[in-house]
Amino acid sequence: MALYIKDKDVDALAEKLQAAVGASTKAEAVRAALLHELERVNARQSFAERNAEAFALADKIGAPNPDFDAKAFMDRMWGE
């Protein structure tokens, strides 16, 4: 089935992309853009995967020092 672009803005974007990537046709440019977007979506990590990485990093860093005096640290940082 052929892809017919009725929206003038979308057609203009397809033309810009065709020129930018040096595609011989708008169809080739649209194909490349769609493939690129599918790769990006498929490579995206789920929230659970990103969250697991964050927890692993936190575990690697370790627990905070309970004796750390944040006020004294900030005072030193500000030269007080």
Rank of each mutant, 00 (worst) to 15 (best):
Q45P: 08
D59Q: 11
A54W: 04
V30H: 03
D75M: 10
A33T: 00
A43G: 06
A43I: 00
D69S: 04
A29L: 01
F55K: 14
F68D: 11
R76G: 15
E53D: 12
R76Y: 06
A20H: 04
W78N: 15
A12S: 12
S24M: 04
M74P: 01
E15R: 13
N51C: 12
E53W: 01
A14Y: 01
L34A: 13
D59C: 05
R44G: 11
G62Y: 02
K71Y: 07
Q18D: 02
I5V: 15
K26T: 06
M1L: 08
E37Q: 13
L17K: 05
L57D: 08
R31S: 13
K60N: 08
D75T: 03
R44V: 02
A27K: 10
L13M: 10
E28W: 00
A70S: 08
T25P: 06
Y4W: 05
N65W: 00
V41P: 00
F47Q: 08
G22S: 07
A63G: 04
M74I: 14
I5R: 05
A72L: 10
G22H: 03
E80A: 14
L13R: 12
K6Y: 10
F73E: 06
L3C: 04
L57A: 15
E15I: 04
D9P: 02
R50V: 10
E53L: 11
A33G: 08
D11V: 01
D9N: 14
G79S: 05
R44D: 09
D11L: 14
N65F: 02
P66K: 06
S24T: 07
E28I: 03
P66D: 03
